[in-house]
Design a protein around this nucleic acid. Structure first.
Lengths: 239, 239
DNA sequence: CAGTGGTCTAGACCACAAA
DNA sequence: TTGTGGTCTAGACCACTGT
């Protein structure tokens, strides 16, 4: 993993674009030239370029070349799957996580339906709040299937749950389905969040699956509305 | 366009998955079998499968095969770039568009900065509201560069702006950068939207670019908070 | 071990843009 | 016309999953 030639080429080129060593608006070398530079076949180069295109680094134009896009005001990319800890590490602000609840429970009917659980499956319920500069602005409620995560401690939840899951347990996250809505703040929001004058929260509900396509986790992430921001890059599918 | 073999294979397979002719949880035929079925080389099959994977139809597992995912509760895919008209056509509710303003104007400083405009460039400003079952729930403010759209009429704005742009003007949309935030309702929201008891709107700001990588349009789409819903499918990038 | 998907290659032909 | 990207192919080898 991560050793594929086309990933190396992708990393080399995306880094150059980030560092502005290749100016926005200019053309990348042609695919044949890149093939010589990296000693790779054209199809391999094209895999790297397709990845750059998907992630908003370049725009390919037939007959012309690959235009480098302006990636400078590329704000935090929540668009993909990024854990809170990874985000916090990239920011200059001081983030802090508080664990409010950690229990092993029998799921209620609603959760059983949402997560498609069997009768005997138990889940870990974790409630955490995230604070930036002393203000609690995010409330996370996670439900993890015990069959996949046998043991969980407050200490792990306070540091990085995803680190533990991926590095210690060796589970690989594959994909997630997300839904974003806006709701009135409830009792839990008022209890755990610093609500200022706001009465609304943005709710991001996610079903997280492993690479094996097994459902692994359901998460409800509740954000104070005035602190919520979601940035996205989308390509038009011309078929 | 749209005639590529791998697109045809993608369409054939995604349709079968939608119609549940291939059950969720089962395995797709192997890549070699698909190659024989569609009389295509393995790399071509793999392009189609990669597209299915990106769009949440399958999960590929090395050494095992491609698992078909449950796509049945796949709600409206605002995730990509879809115009209001395309959305409305897929829904059972009755949508309606009202044009409130259509002017050719000199951009103010803020718009000039956001859109990176020259001093002499004029823009079309369009204000429209979208109603479902008689309630106005979305307010769209579009700014289009006149150099790319010489003429615009209220009639076009009331029907489909994107139809006109892509079919009549022959412009091809390439990609967009979006940002979603939540804000207090302003005077325009209160004037044009049926605000019920809500005091907040979800604001989606988009910079829309053509396939040539030229900036083409800036849009501010303001949604009544209780009617807003955004669904996303995201893969984890393991590098 | 056999069978699966993951990567890479060299070469061919087509579609499009610019001169 | 030349050079660019877009597609497709056949074959090779590697990595992983199951038996």
């Amino acid at each position: 993993m991560g050793k594929s030639k086309f990933i190396l080429i992708y990393n080399a080129l995306s880094e150059k674009i980030h560092k502005q060593e290749i100016a926005a608006g200019s053309l990348l070398p042609t695919e044949n030239e890149l093939g010589e530079q990296f000693k790779a076949s054209r199809e391999t180069i094209r895999k790297a370029l397709a990845m750059l295109s998907r992630n908003g680094y370049i725009q390919k134009i037939q007959g012309k070349g690959s235009i480098v896009l302006d990636v400078s005001r590329q704000n935090f990319p929540i668009s993909g799957l990024t854990s809170f800890r990874e985000l916090a590490n990239h920011s200059k602000d001081t983030w802090r996580t508080n664990v409010h609840q950690l229990v092993l429970m029998k799921p209620d009917d609603h959760l059983k339906m949402v997560m498609n659980l069997h009768d005997d499956q138990m889940v870990w319920k974790v409630i955490r709040s995230r604070s930036v500069n002393g203000e609690a602005v995010i409330l996370d409620k996670d439900y993890l299937i015990q069959g996949l995560v046998p043991i969980l401690t407050a200490d792990i939840c306070e540091h990085s749950l995803y680190d533990y899951i991926e590095n210690d347990l060796g589970l690989k996250i594959g994909f997630a389905k997300k839904e974003i809505t806006v709701e009135h703040a409830g009792v839990e929001d008022k209890r755990y969040l610093t609500m200022s004058r706001d009465t609304h929260v943005v709710v991001v509900r996610s079903l997280v699956y492993l690479e094996s396509a097994e459902l692994f986790q359901f998460t409800e992430s509740r954000h104070r509305a005035d602190k919520f921001r979601f940035v996205d890059f989308a390509r038009r599918e011309h078929q």
